[in-house]
């Protein structure tokens, strides 16, 4: 009796084990297949501009974008510069804000911070990007137009909108990093007679720096790939701007603007895929940087 009962139990256990294995490995295979087919699809589309239409690598890094010209020119350097400068500037604005907010929530006023402030900041992450774009176009662009020379649209407006969008990413990663810091470190610092400011600036921030950097890089990756909100406030002229308040484009904005209007398989369409491919490669670079930082954080 007991023997057969145990046997049944073992059998059930084996079945559960196998169901779990099959379900999870199916999910992981599906995920891997999707990722690889996406990369394959974008890569073949993106490289066809070089192989089929005879575009040279040096041409794509030219400064003149004139797809309708005679001969057509596909210099994407203005877009690459636009993408990097907006996301870098956004990170420069958002990083001090996000890290300070995290310090406040974890170290200075944990009660109020974690209970009220964190949900509010996480709420920012849920706002759709079109709303950010429209607010940017209605509030930030007119403001910059009044204060600075130029039309208000440009890198500055784009970076401002993006910095608010990536604030939740930076803040929540910084909060987690600060909260997981062993209490002993801080206590040791206090025991040596350090003030709170000294503890924060000499012990807490240096130890958590790799994790804080991870948050910033992830935020930049988000800013780099954001299309809609940026497209609405950046002006979209295919030129390298002379100032932060002059119309320019990013990789994402030129793709969203032109993809629907060009015919599949035409050279311009293929070059847009090349830009998408560059965008994807850049995202990979960001991911590798994050992995590298994480490894450093574990050490």
């Amino acid at each position: 009796m007991t023997q057969s009962g145990r046997k049944q139990k073992v059998k059930q256990h084996v079945i559960e084990e196998w169901t779990g294995k099959i379900v999870t490995s199916f999910c992981i295979v599906l995920l891997v297949v999707i990722i690889f087919s996406m990369v394959y699809f974008v890569a073949t589309k993106g490289l066809s501009a070089f192989f089929k239409d005879g575009l040279k690598l040096s041409e794509i890094f030219g400064t003149t974008w004139k797809p309708d010209g005679e001969p057509p020119l596909f210099g994407a350097l203005p877009f690459i510069i636009g993408s990097f400068s907006t996301s870098l500037l956004a990170a420069v604005i958002a990083a001090p804000l996000g890290i300070s907010a995290a310090l406040f929530m974890v170290e200075i006023m944990p009660n109020i911070g974690r209970k009220y402030l964190q949900p509010v900041i996480e709420l920012l992450a849920g706002i759709p990007s079109v709303v950010y774009g429209f607010v940017g176009l209605s509030v930030i662009v007119p403001l910059y137009r009044d204060i600075f020379p130029g039309q208000g649209l440009g890198i500055a407006a784009g970076a401002t909108v993006l910095s608010i969008m990536i604030l939740p990413t930076i803040t929540s990663i910084a909060t987690d990093a600060l909260a997981s810091l062993p209490a002993g470190l801080k206590e040791g610092s206090y025991a040596l007679g350090a003030t709170r400011w000294q503890t924060l600036s000499r012990t807490v921030i240096p130890t958590t720096l790799p994790a804080l950097m991870t948050g910033i890089v992830l935020g930049m990756a988000r800013a780099f790939g954001e299309a809609l909100a940026v497209q609405m406030v950046i002006g979209n002229a295919p030129h390298i701007p002379h100032s932060l308040f002059e119309s320019t484009s990013t990789l994402t904005s030129v793709i969203t603007l032109s993809m629907g209007n060009t015919v599949m398989g035409s050279m311009q369409n293929n070059v847009l895929w090349t830009l998408a491919f560059i965008l994807m490669m850049m995202t990979f670079v960001f991911v590798f940087v994050v992995r590298w930082l994480e490894r450093r954080a574990q050490r």
Binding site: P67, L153, G235, H239, P241, T256, L257
Partner: peptide
């Protein structure tokens, strides 16, 4: 408008009679 846009093509063809280039500082919206 972006250079690939149909609206821009119409305006350039019938109002301007010529293709125009994207000028430095010009704003493009879809």
């Amino acid at each position: 408008r972006p250079s690939s846009s149909g609206t821009r093509a119409t305006f350039e063809k019938y109002a301007l009679g010529t293709k125009t280039e994207d000028l430095q500082g010009a704003i493009q919206e879809d």
